[in-house]
Amino acid sequence: MTDTNETERNRRRVLDGFTEFANGNVDILRTLLREDFIEHSPGNPSGRDAFVGFIAHAPLASARLELKRVIADGPYVVLHYLMALPGDERGTAVVDIWRLEDGLIAEHWDVVQPVPDAAEIPHGMF
């Protein structure tokens, strides 16, 4: 059985961090990630400092992020959102999976998919 207090604490921590990041505060990641943070996305570095440095210079840092849903269960928090880079009319659908340990993010996985033309997805991406 999942501890609802742990679930809510983790949900709130990730959601607050996402909101700060979406408002342009990349440095918020330094307060959210464990020093030994593990990144599972190909091409992205592990380790808090390496990851923050990478993200600070990645297109994601200048993207508009529109959160669509949050799912939390114990140490896991899942965010589903639209990421729209400047000049990208349709954007990209993103699902981030975060695993927290002692109140800090320990691991991250993601799935990223360009949003196709509306005619290809009659029920929408979100």
Rank of each mutant, 00 (worst) to 15 (best):
V115H: 09
A50Q: 09
V70P: 00
I28P: 05
D110Q: 07
E120M: 12
R48Y: 12
E89A: 13
V14A: 03
E120D: 12
E8Y: 08
P42D: 11
W109I: 11
F126Q: 04
L60K: 03
L60S: 11
E39D: 10
E6F: 01
N10Q: 07
F21Q: 02
L65G: 01
I105M: 13
I71K: 02
P86R: 06
H80Y: 13
L82N: 07
D49V: 07
V95E: 01
I38C: 02
D36Y: 08
A22E: 06
G53I: 08
L85E: 06
N23K: 10
A22V: 03
G17S: 10
M125N: 03
D36A: 08
D16V: 02
E20H: 08
A22L: 04
V112T: 14
D102R: 13
Y81G: 03
E39T: 04
M125A: 01
V70W: 04
R99G: 07
L60A: 14
H80V: 09
S62H: 10
R34V: 02
R64G: 01
L100I: 05
G53N: 14
I121E: 09
F37K: 12
I71A: 11
E101F: 06
R99S: 13
N5M: 13
H40N: 10
H40W: 12
F18Q: 00
